[in-house]
Write a protein that binds this DNA or RNA. Structure first.
Length: 199
DNA sequence: CGAGAGATGCGCT
DNA sequence: GCGCATCTCTCGC
């Protein structure tokens, strides 16, 4: 399968987020391929988006968001979890797509071990789970996924019907409908039911 | 099986 | 200190 090129990531974050559904995220670690089909994403774009890390300007942590498209932005949160984003839009325009869930396809046994779970549906049905399953952390922050041998995205099949909803877990900016998922796919995360949200 | 809270560490106020 | 683009476990039904 062909790898996605730089031009793929240059578009608006919400469009890239949609387009990433059905593509294959690949992690190569110690010579082994760990991979899955992207089934859930969220877009964060611009300095006006109160849900985005770029909302309060450029800081050391979010600097990758302001750089070239097609790079991994990995950040640590909640004291436990790494989140994988892929930057998009031209340089200086802060934007990224959070990869929220995968349907596992290669290296399933190893990913289960990384996660210490038995059920396939538990491997990567959420952004923190996904990073753990693939062995992603701050060491890969800034990685160029267009050229990297360790982390990249390959073209895939059509995603089929796409669902749209509010983004998960935000106290501000949740009214933007920038979460996208493959409708009916069982590996999509359920999100966090107790957070404030409007129908 | 759904709701709720604790875990856990870092960046910012 | 507080809040966080979360996860997991414990309760109670």
């Amino acid at each position: 399968m062909a790898r996605l090129r730089r031009s793929f990531y240059e578009g608006r974050a919400d469009r890239v987020a949609r387009a990433l559904l059905g593509k294959r995220l690949v992690r190569v670690r110690e010579g082994r391929r760990l991979a899955g089909v992207i089934v859930e994403t969220e877009a964060y774009r611009g300095t006006r988006d109160p849900g985005s890390h770029a909302y309060r300007g450029r800081k050391p942590r979010n600097a990758v968001m302001f750089g070239d498209p097609g790079h991994a932005y990995l950040y640590f949160t909640y004291g436990n979890h790494w989140m994988l984003n892929l930057t998009c839009e031209p340089s200086q325009r802060p934007a990224a797509v959070l990869i929220r869930a995968l349907e596992p396809s290669e290296g399933v046994a190893l990913m289960k071990r990384n996660r210490r779970v038995e059920e396939e549906v538990e491997i990567a049905s959420g952004p923190g789970k996904l990073a753990k399953a693939l062995g992603l952390d701050g060491a890969l922050n800034g990685e160029d996924v267009v050229t990297s041998r360790r982390l990249f995205v390959e073209d895939g099949l059509s995603a089929g019907r796409i669902g749209v909803s509010s983004r998960v877990g935000l106290s501000e900016g949740w009214e933007r409908k920038w979460r996208f998922y493959i409708a009916g796919n069982r590996f999509v995360s359920r999100g966090k039911p107790s957070l404030p949200r409007k129908p």
